[in-house]
Design a protein around this nucleic acid. Structure first.
Length: 935
DNA sequence: GCGGATCAC
DNA sequence: TATGGTGATCCGC
């Protein structure tokens, strides 16, 4: 396929014909133009090996062969290689025969749908680059000079804000999953092994890396590279447990450490180092455990600072065992320097888990991250906190090593002749004209070696999703069934964190690996299976119809929920709670005094490069659903936290309820699609595929499958603390006050809902509602029991959702008695307010309060809030207005979907669900449309 | 607000 | 036989 040859002609601009100065680098424009002439998308039949750069290159470039820099071998296949080829930019992968490895990878991939899609994406990137180069060609010298001035101004501003005072440490466990598996199965130690499946590997050990086997590579390709490779299935429970152990140690050096995944974290050592100076020697002494490395080994390892060291390509070899390693066994003494502190931490990790970690020490997060990779595995590297050291370090650093610059950004930068961070500085004026403000601001910070010097607390999540890959799924009923299943899972997850959101997004990937997302935002927040599915099925239906009469051939489906409700409809509720709990802590993430100015010349085109807000808001996630660990670092002891009162939380809840006021009734019954509710969704789905399950089968499966108890899957174990919920009195074991707060909110919300349901709504007449309700009741049997506090204490993060009627009554009584006790002061205050000049206005009742005593005023507000809560509990909640018994759902008795109405004409337009009537109309229509698929 | 794309792990 | 899942962000529209 030939792409835009006229544009290619345009691109073949002689060097400097654009009048574009070199901005400090006389040679920098040459590669660009050379590259242009080499952008050639024609299919080439050259063997892979022909595209290998044969010119001598610096080390980093060798690691990045097959990329387009200098225009070498820029054919279609070579372009593809930049996506498909081995990414050996990883520890333990030096000196591999990339030619051979890539040939195997290509042979295994070629012709596959995956390959074809990768090729397509590659061409899109190439076109982006092409466009960028055209923009570049139009930049005048004048523009560039202005940009240069702007860039220099900003650089000097940034320089002023440079902070070298913090000691940031990035710790990364070495080949974590693989290391855990090898530890637990010593026979694996000498074998090339990887963790994952034939479809995808999560990580590999260092033996396997020598064959080119690495993370994110499909197992079947890895097997071709290394036929003796042992593939061990993932065992997240195990990794989580080990991670807990490691995190306990992290917490001792920085109680506010930021975990990035199960095997990685940022720590701020600054405070620890200060304390460390006055540490008694005894506390810097750590004993070897019975089975460990020898002190000699440790000494050898500890010598690996500053300078890179010759590392054995094989990790985790059998270590000598100390027979005398009991209480009187050998020990290791550590000093007070930062290197010693980090070495001590790594030592302790190894003693505790028999696993090694690597660490980077630097004045900011970006640098620390790069440093931790420097002496991997089982090593550490410290970058001195001086400007000179930082700048020197940065100069030689390949841009790809920087967090936030991925393969696409790298390729775009390469096209501009930029490969290292020093190139970045030199071309910054150009970058400011070609890239978005966000991007080039990120670039300029990188080029100066600047990034966040404070480790941000993890903020509340912004979305939650679940997705699954499967063998081709083309039948609408199966697709709907799966969709429902995903909604089920998602609702379950939402429940655990007591979240609800307004935006539902459906993600699909067809068998050609093309990904689409379709989203709908509701005016209210949803969390139940029914509500989520009501939207998701709508979106799915549209996609099916769009594809019609061809079937929608899927290989992946996912459902995401976002736009979580907030207390004030602007900022997320939990954020406000956090900020309340931490009055002293402002947003530290924006510590750099960046001048957010664009060059006056303006950008010709803002090519965006995803910068992932380097270190500003690092995601806390572990890559797999089972692994989701939205836990913050260990909390300070409860007593030290400025505690938020129950009433304050109740207020937050009340605001949330208000925000959700147009909350729809449970109307998920409409358009219900029976699903397999087995916990193992993928398996049951596959079963459905292979056995060509009928809808009826699926339905029967559902009826037969036991209701899963509401299981606790907390990722936090040993660091947990226990809070007692003031609503259900369940003890909630968690490190995260967010979780606890949401638990309370959830209890309040559920109490209100139960009350509402108990008051007898029309939905009781709906057989399907009955069905759902019975499920809910089964699920709630365990969690909440007000009368049995002891039994409730077993719940580890076991968020009780619904108050049993009896218990709720008890709660209500409790609250009522509380109110009674306090009623008098309220009346007195209100009365007195009539006679005096009011000073404060209650945000709840809006009445001005005649007092300047904040304690009294707060007391009044608390009482008002309390009354509000009671009011909601008293049945006047937002959860009213269930639809009148809609009977067009499936007949659950027979297990068959039974459309109740004739199908209406389909409407592409989505009704604005702002008013209940239109919402209802929409759902009726949807249901009818979905019914079509069951005929 | 939506959808595609990029990135990290 | 066969190329993941979760979450975040950015940009153009």
């Amino acid at each position: 396929m030939r792409v835009n040859s006229p544009e290619l002609t345009l691109l073949k601009t002689p060097p400097n014909s654009t009048g574009c100065p070199d901005s400090g680098s006389t040679s920098s424009s040459e590669p660009d133009d050379e590259l242009f002439s080499d952008i050639d998308f024609q299919v080439s039949r050259k063997p892979v090996s022909d595209f290998i750069d044969r010119t001598p290159q610096p080390k980093w470039q060798k690691q990045n062969r097959f990329r387009m820099e200098n225009g070498v071998g820029s054919t279609k296949e070579n372009n593809l290689l930049s996506r498909m080829a081995l990414n050996d930019n990883k520890a333990g992968m030096e000196g591999l025969d990339r030619d051979k490895i890539n040939r195997i990878i290509m042979e295994a991939s070629k012709g596959s749908r995956f390959y074809e899609n990768e090729m397509k994406k590659e061409q899109q990137v190439n076109q982006r680059i092409e466009k960028m180069m055209q923009q570049k060609a139009q930049i005048t010298e004048q523009l560039l000079q202005k940009a240069q001035a702007q860039v220099e101004k900003m650089a000097s501003e940034l320089e002023k804000g440079r902070d070298l005072s913090r000691v940031i440490v990035h710790v990364d466990m070495d080949a974590f999953y693989a290391a855990v598996e090898m530890r637990d199965c010593p026979e694996l130690k000498d074998k090339p092994m990887a963790v994952g499946s034939m479809s995808m590997l999560s990580t590999s050990n260092y033996h396997a890396r020598k064959y080119g086997v690495r993370a994110a590579m499909p197992g079947f390709i890895a097997k071709k590279l290394c036929p003796s490779l042992v593939i061990v299935p993932l065992n997240f429970d195990k990794y989580r447990a080990v991670s807990e152990e490691v995190r306990e140690i992290f917490a001792e050096y920085d109680p506010n450490f930021q975990p990035m995944s199960l095997d990685e974290a940022y720590l701020d050592f600054t405070d620890h180092l200060e304390q460390r100076q006055s540490c008694p020697e005894s506390s810097l002494t750590h004993r070897y455990r019975s089975r460990s490395n020898t002190p000699a080994d440790m000494q050898i390892e500890s010598d690996q600072t500053e300078e890179g060291s010759d590392l054995s390509p094989v990790l985790f070899e059998d270590s000598p065992v100390f027979s005398e390693g009991d209480a009187g066994g050998p020990f290791e003494q550590f000093g007070t320097s930062v290197e010693e502190a980090v070495r001590e931490m790594r030592f302790r990790i190894e003693q505790k888990t028999t696993l090694t970690a690597s660490a980077g020490i630097a004045p900011n997060m970006m640098l620390a991250k790069v440093c931790s990779d420097k002496n991997k595995p089982n090593g550490q590297y410290r970058l001195a906190p001086t400007r000179e050291a930082v700048m020197d370090f940065i100069q030689k650093l390949p841009v790809r090593k920087v967090c936030g610059i991925g393969k696409v950004s790298e390729k775009m930068l390469n096209a501009l002749g930029i490969t290292t961070c020093s190139d970045l500085s030199r071309q910054m004026a150009l970058l400011s004209l070609l890239f978005s403000e966000t991007s080039w601001h990120h670039f300029i910070q990188i080029s100066l070696g600047l990034s966040s010097t404070h480790i941000p607390r993890h903020e509340e999540r912004k979305s939650m999703s679940t997705e699954r890959t499967f063998k081709e799924l083309s039948k609408p009923e199966e697709q709907f069934s799966l969709c429902r299943e995903l909604c089920d899972d998602l609702a379950e997850d939402l429940k655990k964190e007591a979240l609800k959101g307004k935006t539902v997004t459906l993600k699909i990937k067809n068998v050609n690996f093309e990904v689409k997302t379709r989203a709908q935002t509701l005016p209210y927040a949803v969390a139940t299976v029914e509500d989520i599915f009501a939207v998701a099925k709508d979106l799915l239906k549209m996609e099916i119809e769009n594809e019609s009469p061809q079937p929608l051939r899927l290989r992946l489906m996912g459902v995401r929920i976002s736009a979580f409700v907030s207390s004030d409809d602007k900022t997320p509720m939990q954020k406000s709670i956090i900020s309340f709990l931490q009055p002293g802590k402002t947003d530290r993430s924006r510590s750099s005094p960046i001048m957010h100015q664009k060059p006056e010349v303006g950008n010709l085109c803002n090519h965006s490069v995803q910068t992932s807000q380097l270190a500003d808001d690092p995601p806390v996630q572990d890559g797999q659903k089972q692994n989701k660990v939205f836990w913050r670092s260990k909390q300070r002891p409860t007593g030290e936290e400025p505690q938020q009162s129950f009433f304050e939380r109740a207020h937050a809840k009340r605001l949330e309820l208000q925000a959700a006021k147009p909350s729809p009734p449970d109307e998920g019954c409409e358009g219900y699609v029976p699903v397999v509710t087995s916990n193992n969704g993928t398996e049951s789905l596959k079963q459905a595929n292979t056995d060509d399950c009928t809808v009826q089968d699926l339905c029967e499966n559902e009826l037969a499958s036991p209701v899963q108890p509401h299981a606790s899957t907390s990722g936090c174990g040993t660091l947990t603390e226990t809070f007692t919920c003031p609503v259900c009195f369940t003890k909630v074991k968690t490190t995260d006050l967010n979780v606890f707060n949401r638990h309370i909110d959830s209890c309040l919300s559920d109490a209100a809902r139960r009350e509402d349901e108990a008051s007898g709504s029309e939905s009781d007449l709906d057989p399907e509602n009955d069905h759902r309700k019975s499920v809910v009741v089964t699920q709630q049997e365990k969690p909440c029991d007000l009368k049995n506090e002891a039994s409730a204490s077993s719940g580890e993060l076991d968020l009780c959702r619904v108050l049993p009627q009896e218990g709720q009554q008890t709660l209500k009584n409790n609250l009522v008695s509380l109110i009674k006790v306090d009623k008098k002061p309220v009346a007195l205050q209100q009365q007195s307010s009539l006679s005096r000049s009011p000073l404060l206005t209650c945000p709840v009742c809006q009445r001005t309060q005649d007092t300047d005593d904040l304690a009294i005023f707060n007391h009044h507000v608390d009482l008002c809030l309390n009354q509000e809560v009671l009011h909601e509990l008293g049945g006047q909640t937002t959860f009213t207005g269930k639809p009148s018994a809609v009977k067009n759902s499936f007949n659950m008795d027979s297990g068959h979907p039974l459309p109740r109405q004739a199908s209406k004409g389909k409407s592409k337009r989505r009704d604005t669900p702002s008013s209940p009537p239109s919402k209802k109309a929409k759902n009726l229509g949807l249901c009818n449309t979905i019914d079509k698929f069951f005929r």
